[in-house]
Amino acid sequence: MTLQAILAAWNKFWFTDHNLFPLAIFRILFGLISFETAILLLPWANDWFGPHAILRVVSLANQDATTRLSLFTIFPDSETWAYFLVSAMAVLSLALAAGFKTRFTALLLWIVMNSIHHRNPYVLNSGDTFMRQIAFWMMFAPSGRILSVDYWQQKKESGSKAWFDQTGPGWTIRALQLQMCLLYMQAFWSKIWGPIWWSGTAVYYTARIEEFYHFPVVPYVFDHLWTCQVISFATLFIEFSLFTFIWVKEFRYLVLLLGVAQHLSIEWMMNIPIFEWLMIINYLLFIDSNDLKKVWSFVSRKPFQKPLTETESA
């Protein structure tokens, strides 16, 4: 292998233009998930982020004084401000989903999200952390070029080409893909050091943590050791595949299907809102745009429209 070949492969990986359809769909769904997150935070905004919140700013600062991006440090410490910021997160999320001034909206959303997260990190879960990483890359991504208010306005002015065929710089898509793979890599790597995962009993224990109970599961599944072991090993295998085999084109869709199945199972079984859906929508970034177009055409067809007869078409 020559240096030239390595550089060419690097350029091909990061800087080839990508079709923007998967990214646009991802932006819409990410905006909606972020909106849901904000709505779930809103009733407790004062209890978690307000001046009389459950954790005081001074206690957090004493624990770790590193400077953090937060609008709470600039504006007055008030109840109104706490509600305003969480409401702003909801509005900006919807604006991002709609693709209104997309990059600027993504920048504002990232700042607001950081402010909320840095004010009280002890109410956050992995889904929030991952959402913050996505918001970071969305500031740079050309996600608003299609299926957006921005596109509609631009089209009105200049009559740009069909949105199906719009391409754009792919490096932010690659960054988002890589970020997702790092998540699975760490999830897998941290588990394999636990003997409980190797003995296959990890799922036995997690299924018995009462605070995670969500919807009822078929009794047999977690009442037998062999089923718990199979699910434990499958979890490890799927997490491993989601940062390795996912890059092999022939395996990609199978890996994504396994990932979707795993996250939907967890969603059914465990009360961990947002996270599972957030992971599933990330898979869109790995789907070939032509395949996604086929799905789009199938979904957006008009099932009750009769095909034109020859006479009508004439």
């Binding site: 953090r68 950081n114 913050r132 999830a187 997690t206």
Partner: peptide, 25 residues
């Protein structure tokens, strides 16, 4: 560290690892 923490890029996804909690509380 300052770059990571300032911009909210700190992240950790070690849920249920290496050993899931085995206490109901």
């Amino acid at each position: 560290r300052k770059y990571i923490v300032l911009l909210g890029l700190d992240q950790d996804y070690t849920v249920f690892a290496p050993t899931p909690r085995n206490q109901n509380i």
